[in-house]
Simulated scan of single mutants.
Amino acid sequence: MLIDLLIKKDKLKLQQCTARFEQQQQLRYAYLWLAGQRCKQFIGSAPGLTLSFSAGLLMQLRHNAMVKTMRGIGAVQWLRRLL
């Protein structure tokens, strides 16, 4: 009798935890979907296209000595601003 009561309590706790986990997973998937939509929207906007185009140009010229120097200077300045 006491064992049955304890088993029922444990089953109820397990069901509650499972339901909470499923809700959290659904919320997580919704946030991921929303983040994906925002990324797509940004990439389609003028700043996003500019950033994408610039990154493409840098990738084509990544072995150029001048581009390497400019990237290094930019990285140093960025690190100085963080510190």
Rank of each mutant, 00 (worst) to 15 (best):
Q24H: 05
Q24V: 03
Q24Y: 04
Q24W: 04
Q25S: 08
Q25Y: 05
Q26E: 12
Q26K: 13
L27N: 10
L27C: 08
L27K: 08
L27H: 07
R28V: 09
Y29A: 14
Y29P: 00
Y29L: 14
Y29K: 14
A30M: 14
Y31C: 03
Y31W: 03
Y31G: 01
L32G: 03
L32M: 11
L32Y: 08
L32H: 05
W33S: 07
L34G: 00
L34N: 06
L34I: 04
L34F: 06
L34E: 10
A35I: 09
A35P: 00
G36T: 02
G36Y: 02
G36N: 07
G36A: 03
G36V: 01
Q37F: 03
Q37S: 03
R38I: 13
R38S: 05
R38T: 02
C39M: 08
K40R: 15
K40S: 11
K40P: 01
Q41M: 14
Q41Y: 11
F42G: 03
F42L: 06
F42Y: 15
F42P: 01
I43A: 09
I43H: 04
I43R: 10
I43W: 04
G44L: 14
G44Q: 15
G44S: 13
G44Y: 10
S45D: 09
S45K: 03
A46P: 01
A46D: 15
A46C: 10
A46G: 03
A46N: 05
P47F: 02
P47V: 02
P47R: 02
G48H: 01
G48F: 00
G48E: 00
G48K: 00
G48W: 00
L49G: 07
L49M: 13
L49V: 04
L49C: 06
T50E: 07
T50G: 05
T50L: 09
L51Q: 08
L51K: 05
L51V: 06
S52A: 11
S52I: 02
F53D: 07
F53N: 08
F53A: 11
F53L: 08
F53W: 07
F53S: 10
F53Q: 14
S54H: 09
S54D: 04
A55G: 03
G56A: 05
G56S: 12
L57H: 11
L57D: 07
L57Y: 08
L57I: 15
L57C: 15
L57G: 08
L57P: 01
L58G: 06
L58S: 06
L58P: 00
L58M: 15
M59A: 14
M59V: 07
M59G: 06
M59N: 13
M59K: 15
L61N: 07
L61Q: 09
L61H: 14
R62P: 01
R62A: 09
R62D: 04
H63Q: 13
N64A: 04
N64T: 06
A65S: 13
A65Y: 09
A65K: 11
A65F: 11
M66W: 10
V67Y: 01
V67P: 00
V67W: 00
V67K: 01
K68A: 07
K68R: 15
T69Q: 12
T69Y: 12
M70S: 13
M70T: 13
M70V: 15
R71I: 12
R71H: 13
R71K: 11
G72T: 12
G72V: 04
I73F: 09
I73K: 13
I73T: 09
I73W: 14
I73G: 03
I73H: 11
